[in-house]
């Protein structure tokens, strides 16, 4: 008896600890918007129903085990059958009712998730790549589109429409605090809505196995006030800042003369590659390599020199640069804010 009690205490503390550990910016049960809120409500409803059903079933089992003890032959007389018909029918009826109620709740929740007011909503196209996220803001005004990678800024309290697709294999876009999953499928556009009511940084992770570095394919959603969002958006609309000093000027020359422009875009320069993420404002991004590393000078250096060690299989090749060349290149990239 003591052992059972101790086991129960350990089990509950593990559940409680993992709930606390998971809480925060990548957790389904901590919704930050109406879409995720509905998913969370549905989750709690199903949890409650399952818990009640489980307790009842176990209670019935224990009752049967205790009272049925000692009987050699099951009682199959007509009287017993008649006596049990009623409770069994009621239990079956309740089961069907619970399932139908769950189905109705599920369908209405799904319906609500699929729609938000469409007028003037921000539209963002997200394309999955092995292994990073391409983010394009589809502003209807020509020349107002912004392309970035791995970090999505959105204004709080406004519905955002996500149009998803993929450049290679199937990926899945999932920001647990904001909405459910949506698969990104090559050659096919999928749409979903999300809205963040609380400002904050919400992390997401590719939710469909997509190859070697699936685990290192994270995305951050920065929910901020409309004003902050507008100023961020305007800064993103600008082409790359010209190199401020001679060192970063040298770095720019190195960038353009090596393989970098084959894959990367730096807005306003001749570098217009579309295989890797755009680097026009790389200096101001939080992370490198889709959430793999913090964006620091040292990490950036390691990434440029030998990305295959940090993220084996990634498309970026190793770069053989002399020390001074690398330092100049780093200064240039850091100046792209």
């Amino acid at each position: 008896m003591m052992n059972a009690e101790r086991g129960f205490r350990i089990a509950t503390s593990i559940v409680a600890a993992s709930a606390v550990a998971c809480g925060g910016n990548e957790f389904v049960l901590d919704p930050a918007g109406p879409q995720a809120g509905r998913v969370t409500d549905l989750w709690w409803y199903m949890f409650a129903v399952a818990a009640i059903v489980w307790v009842l079933v176990v209670a019935a089992l224990l009752y049967a085990a205790r009272h049925g003890h000692g009987r050699d032959v099951p009682d199959q007389s007509d009287e017993t059958n008649d006596r049990l018909r009623r409770p069994v029918s009621i239990a079956a009826g309740i089961t069907v009712l619970v399932l139908v109620a769950t189905l109705i709740y599920d369908v209405t929740a799904g319906e609500a998730l699929a729609s938000l007011p469409r007028d003037k909503a921000l539209r963002i196209k997200i394309t999955g790549h092995q292994w990073w996220w391409e983010i394009q803001y589809m502003d209807p005004v020509s020349g107002n589109q912004v392309s970035t990678a791995n970090e999505i800024h959105i204004p709080t309290g406004e519905p955002v429409q996500i149009i998803g697709s993929s450049a290679d294999v199937i990926h899945s876009f999932w920001i647990p605090n904001l909405a459910g999953k949506k698969d990104l499928i090559p050659g096919h556009a999928t749409a979903m809505w999300l809205q963040a009511d609380k400002p904050g940084i919400y992390r997401g992770q590719c939710a469909e196995f997509c190859g070697h570095q699936h685990a290192k394919m994270a995305v951050l959603v920065m929910a901020e006030s409309r004003q902050q969002f507008n100023s961020w958006y305007n800064s993103q609309l600008q082409p790359a800042a010209p190199p401020p000093d001679s060192m970063s000027k040298t770095g720019e020359k190195i960038f353009m003369s090596k393989g970098c422009p084959l894959c990367h875009t730096v807005g306003g320069t001749m570098a217009q590659g579309h295989i890797g993420p755009p680097l026009t404002h790389i200096g101001s991004s939080y992370t490198l390599a889709a959430g793999t590393l913090k964006n620091t000078r040292g990490n950036l250096a390691g990434w440029i020199v030998d990305p295959q060690r940090i993220k084996p299989g990634v498309r970026m090749p190793p770069n053989d640069l002399a020390g001074p060349e690398l330092q100049a290149l780093l200064s240039y990239l850091e100046s792209l804010r």
């Binding site: 003369s257 090596k258 393989g259 084959l262 090749p317 190793p318 770069n319 053989d320």
Partner: peptide
């Protein structure tokens, strides 16, 4: 040369 690495 110098743009695409040898192995590629």
């Amino acid at each position: 040369r110098g743009r695409i690495p040898d192995y590629q």
